[in-house]
Simulated assay, not measured.
Amino acid sequence: MPPGYSPEWTINVQVTRAPDQRRGDGVFAVESRRWLICAIGAGGERTPTDEQGFLEFLRGLDNPMVAECAEHAKPAGELYPGGQPRQPPDAVSSDVPPAGATDRHRRRPL
């Protein structure tokens, strides 16, 4: 963060809420005046990986504080997409453990 910009919080988030709120964000103070800023997309929403799209995504949320923080920030590196790739509903079976899982992690039907 630039000198002189000092919000009164160290963590600020807007969580997603199914099914209506599919976008969220968060900013977390890390160290040395550095912040981790996250954009969250759920239910088919994708977060942009270009700086302008990222800022527009944050500006479009109900929580203006994270967008304000991002506007004052100097990026420390590239924007990275997160999340998991979409899979068809039948790609995961309750009797097949996730990759790398042990018997302790095996999925069991309820």
Score class of each variant (00 low, 15 high):
residue 1 M to K: 04
residue 2 P to K: 14
residue 2 P to V: 15
residue 4 G to S: 07
residue 4 G to H: 10
residue 6 S to K: 13
residue 7 P to W: 05
residue 10 T to E: 11
residue 10 T to H: 10
residue 11 I to H: 08
residue 15 V to S: 15
residue 15 V to T: 12
residue 15 V to G: 13
residue 16 T to S: 08
residue 16 T to R: 04
residue 17 R to N: 15
residue 20 D to E: 15
residue 23 R to Q: 10
residue 24 G to Y: 00
residue 25 D to I: 00
residue 26 G to N: 04
residue 26 G to K: 05
residue 27 V to E: 01
residue 28 F to M: 12
residue 28 F to L: 13
residue 30 V to C: 07
residue 35 W to H: 01
residue 37 I to A: 03
residue 37 I to E: 01
residue 39 A to K: 00
residue 39 A to M: 02
residue 40 I to L: 12
residue 41 G to L: 01
residue 42 A to P: 00
residue 43 G to C: 05
residue 44 G to D: 06
residue 44 G to V: 06
residue 44 G to E: 07
residue 44 G to F: 04
residue 45 E to A: 11
residue 47 T to S: 07
residue 48 P to V: 00
residue 48 P to D: 05
residue 49 T to G: 07
residue 49 T to K: 09
residue 51 E to Y: 12
residue 53 G to R: 05
residue 53 G to T: 03
residue 55 L to G: 05
residue 55 L to H: 08
residue 56 E to S: 14
residue 56 E to F: 10
residue 57 F to C: 03
residue 61 L to G: 06
residue 63 N to H: 15
residue 64 P to V: 05
residue 65 M to Y: 15
residue 66 V to T: 10
residue 68 E to Y: 05
residue 69 C to Y: 00
residue 71 E to F: 03
residue 72 H to K: 15
residue 73 A to V: 02
residue 75 P to L: 15
residue 76 A to L: 15
residue 77 G to D: 04
residue 77 G to K: 08
residue 79 L to D: 01
residue 79 L to I: 14
residue 82 G to N: 03
residue 84 Q to Y: 14
residue 85 P to T: 10
residue 85 P to N: 10
residue 85 P to R: 14
residue 85 P to S: 09
residue 86 R to I: 11
residue 86 R to S: 12
residue 86 R to Q: 15
residue 86 R to V: 14
residue 89 P to K: 02
residue 90 D to F: 04
residue 90 D to G: 06
residue 90 D to R: 08
residue 94 S to Q: 12
residue 95 D to C: 09
residue 98 P to E: 12
residue 99 A to G: 11
residue 100 G to W: 05
residue 100 G to H: 09
residue 100 G to P: 01
residue 100 G to V: 04
residue 102 T to L: 11
residue 103 D to I: 07
residue 103 D to A: 14
residue 105 H to S: 11
residue 106 R to Q: 09
residue 107 R to K: 11
residue 108 R to P: 00
residue 108 R to W: 04
residue 109 P to H: 12
residue 110 L to A: 12
